[in-house]
Nucleic acid binder design. Structure first.
Lengths: 339, 339
DNA sequence: TTGTAGGCGTTATCAG
DNA sequence: CTGATAACGCCTACAA
């Protein structure tokens, strides 16, 4: 059974393609009789417009691209969730690609999406990338573009972020208010803006409460894994047994920290308090329950698509578009690990 | 800067569109000189073919659709991972939709993807669906189609599955060999084939080891959540305090079970042993570490795309295609919860 | 070796 | 109210 086309409907009805097209799109200048005939036939043949042809004609595909570091990750999959949902509501589909934290892959994928002529791109940078050429290329080609979470401050595009610095500040302050005097920080990789900001927040909180900053208490993740958390916890316990608080870049790593302390029977929160970041679902399930910073991931997805839609619509109507940045609120979630 | 087209290249070079097209596609019947000129210009203008036009011409989009119950789920996100990776390697992009376990949404999404004219569809059924019309429609329209994990046995299409019944049998046998005499089962919803199969495996193992089957020991999840796990654990402890083993449909729920037992200080594995299903990353991180059945999720994704590719290629070459089913191996992962 | 012409299916313009 | 005609950008017989 071949696909139904306007032509076929036109021929069976003995009218022109033009008229069929108009009838289907509810143009006013078609007689009711004709319209009805067309609509009925189209219905019974279950006609659907050939989207390839429509794409070519209208120059839009009602499809957007999403590039994230990795799909298997609570935070990112929640964002995906928000984006897909919101996109679907607005008649858009979402192509997802993952950079696996590799700049090279990310570049290729941006190219893929542009060649595919998606209507817009949403992206969270890999740890290796920044305001690189491939990103600038998106701007140059005027493809609607939104960054979230791991962004590049230098790129002029819409962004959805949290105030990482403030959130980190609050997390460390929370440790301090709980009585911690010597606080270590397991930070994210050197490159990503949010790792930098969280580090700055950490520093600022120490400063504020007159705790001397000691760069030896800062441990830098390379891959941001559970295993790294375990390893750093071990290292911290050895190198600085008097550390009584740890602020960890993200929950997954923090859970690694807890796992190590469990293994060697270092009591959390008695001997050392731990706070993570991003409120991973699992954090409330482990023992002890992990205190953390709640990050509205689903909402980030929704807002990201919203901003993209704004830009796509503005461009369609040839209106100017000024990028906007939306900053979402975070909140400390105090649980057992900082009791 | 408008998009570069063949026409523009042809005009600047003062030759015909045809020749440009041929040169770019390395047809033999173009003089080296012309070809070089074209290639150089195309390069310097960074020409890329308009995929909308190519789609229309070739009637394929090099895009596939993927429908899964939910993205935020370790198992599914791992499968996505496998599919995206494999697809990208083969020059395909992946549009992802989630049914949220709703039949109605799923139907809409199948329609969306067909209207979009994706080259193929990969899908794991929602808990509400079966061999419904929207699925049959995919077959009728001869759209290449692969189901994985939650499949419908009645639909003639390629499938990637595990032997749920056998895997469940092994899990329950594991409990029995560890000394359990009274084993409860927290099963999945009534509808999905894999929940049924796992239940059957549970029954078969009991039978094999002469343990009487008691339907009161079977608890049926509705939403398959952490919370349900907690609630059922509580119920089991109350209704059947002598239960000494529980086989749980999936790790997430099993973790809920452990959480409740932790709270009320029922010792796992001393008083009751627990085994889950699917080897969620978190299972090795909680206390006690959860025994489970390892399910090769990433591999399922890879194989699913592989089968889809086979079918897409076969159809393109107008060759017949016989659906295949790939059954992947599972393995018991014994950890602390069944020591 | 190069170019002409027609078509993929839809939409938009403009004339009847 | 209806329809002929021309795009959209690419591909490919077939002709020159």
């Amino acid at each position: 059974m071949r696909d139904i086309t306007l032509k076929q409907i036109a021929e069976t009805l003995g009218i022109s393609i033009t008229t069929v097209s108009k009838a289907l799109k509810n143009y006013p200048d078609v007689s009711d009789k004709t319209r009805k005939a067309v609509l009925d036939l189209a219905q019974s043949l279950s006609y659907t417009p050939n989207s390839f042809a429509v794409n070519l004609r209208t120059k839009e595909s009602r499809t957007i691209g999403l590039i994230i570091p990795e799909v298997v990750h609570h935070f990112f999959s929640s964002v995906i969730n928000g984006i897909i949902d919101e996109a679907e509501k607005n008649g858009y589909l979402v192509i997802i690609l993952q950079s696996n934290e590799s700049l090279e892959l990310e570049q290729k994928q941006v190219e893929l999406l542009m060649n595919k002529r998606v209507d817009g791109i949403i992206m969270s940078l890999s740890n290796e990338s920044n305001d690189d050429e491939h990103i600038k290329d998106i701007i140059r080609k005027e493809v609607p573009f939104v960054m979230f979470d791991k962004i590049s401050k230098l790129i002029p595009c819409s962004k959805v972020i949290i105030n990482d610095q403030k959130a980190a500040y609050n997390a460390v302050e929370h440790l301090i208010l709980k009585g911690c005097k010597k606080i270590a920080h397991i930070r994210g990789p050197v490159n990503p803006q949010n790792a930098i900001d969280r580090f700055l927040g950490y520093k600022k909180a120490l400063e504020k409460y007159d705790i001397p900053f000691d760069s030896k208490l800062v441990y830098t993740c390379k891959n941001v894994t559970f295993e790294e958390g375990k390893a750093f916890a071990e290292q911290i316990a050895k190198e600085h047994p008097d550390v009584d608080g740890i602020f960890v870049i993200t929950d997954l790593v923090a859970v690694g920290v807890l796992a190590h302390f469990n293994e060697v029977s270092i009591n959390v929160p008695e001997q050392v308090k731990v706070i993570g970041f991003s409120n991973w679902f699992m954090s409330q399930v482990i023992t002890p329950k992990l205190s953390t910073v709640d990050q509205p991931s689903f909402e980030m997805g929704v807002q990201s698509f919203g901003l993209l839609l704004e830009e796509m619509n503005a461009r369609k109507e040839m209106k100017g578009f000024v990028p906007r940045t939306i900053e979402l609120d975070t909140a400390i979630v105090a649980r057992e690990s900082t009791l």
